[in-house]
Computed example of a mutant assay.
Amino acid sequence: MFVELGEDGRRDLLRTETLLVLALSLGASGVSALISFIGSLTRPGGLKDQAATLNGSYAPGRPWLDLAWQLFGIASALVPVLLVAHLLTREGAPGLRVLGFDRTRPLWDLGRGALVAAGIGSAGLAFYLGARAAGFNLTVVPEALPDVWWKFPVLILSAIQNAVVEEVIVLAYLLRRLGQLGWSPMAALAASSLLRGSYHLYQGIGGFIGNVVMGAVFVLAYRRWGRVGPLVAAHALLDIVAFGGYALLAGKVGWLPTP
């Protein structure tokens, strides 16, 4: 039996729902990143002499067990996205389609995503190298997987998973809920961008600032296009290039920092 809620009750329900979704996903990651950053700050040595590994081995020397853990981690990380789809459907919306995450315009999404990725990727790399050189960032290690046959497929799946979780939840879903709760467009932009920066804080101040800026750009693009699909594509392409590029170039070019 469902109880009819007034406007205040509905807003309280949406507020609680949003906090729970974030607590089960990237809000919790933000708290974890803050604790990690405090640990890095209080550890002897500068930030750039420490490393933040994004894709590491779960079972060194046991490739099949490692693969099982990798796939489990990717699949379980997507559960909050399924929860968001369920909640939107219960709301009466057509699931993730209301956020513009569907297969109706794949080439349109991919084309705009590629343009965004090209612009942000080059600027982001330059900002990371500068922040690390200035001592504001850890050395980011995008991948430290063993050289086995599944290495690159797992890196691609990891990149896609990151893109889907972050853009669906922190961008499209959060903006929708904050709008329904009466937040102003500028306040919602700030909240989404700061949250994005918070769960990258484990990389250092540079990682935080760079992702806050990226978050603001993504919010503006999402509002302009009305679809999160291009931003999912952009994020996935950025991570695929970062993960795969590091795997291919680390230790072979002088400009790419390694631990």
Score class of each variant (00 low, 15 high):
residue 1 M to D: 08
residue 6 G to Q: 04
residue 8 D to K: 09
residue 8 D to P: 00
residue 9 G to Y: 05
residue 15 R to V: 06
residue 17 E to W: 02
residue 25 S to M: 15
residue 28 A to L: 11
residue 28 A to V: 09
residue 36 S to F: 02
residue 47 L to I: 04
residue 47 L to W: 04
residue 48 K to T: 04
residue 53 T to A: 14
residue 64 W to V: 11
residue 64 W to C: 05
residue 68 A to G: 10
residue 70 Q to L: 11
residue 74 I to S: 09
residue 83 L to F: 06
residue 91 E to L: 13
residue 92 G to H: 02
residue 92 G to L: 07
residue 93 A to N: 06
residue 94 P to W: 04
residue 96 L to N: 05
residue 96 L to I: 07
residue 101 F to I: 13
residue 102 D to Y: 01
residue 103 R to D: 13
residue 107 L to G: 03
residue 123 A to K: 05
residue 124 G to L: 13
residue 125 L to D: 06
residue 128 Y to N: 13
residue 130 G to W: 00
residue 137 N to F: 01
residue 142 P to M: 06
residue 148 V to P: 05
residue 150 W to S: 15
residue 156 I to A: 07
residue 158 S to G: 10
residue 167 E to W: 00
residue 169 I to C: 10
residue 172 A to C: 03
residue 172 A to K: 09
residue 173 Y to A: 13
residue 179 G to H: 04
residue 179 G to N: 06
residue 185 P to W: 14
residue 185 P to L: 06
residue 185 P to E: 10
residue 189 L to A: 13
residue 191 A to I: 06
residue 192 S to T: 06
residue 193 S to N: 02
residue 195 L to V: 04
residue 197 G to V: 10
residue 204 G to D: 15
residue 205 I to P: 00
residue 207 G to K: 11
residue 220 L to A: 13
residue 234 A to K: 10
residue 235 H to T: 07
residue 240 I to Y: 00
residue 240 I to L: 01
residue 242 A to I: 04
residue 245 G to H: 05
residue 246 Y to R: 11
residue 251 G to N: 03
residue 254 G to K: 09
residue 257 P to R: 07
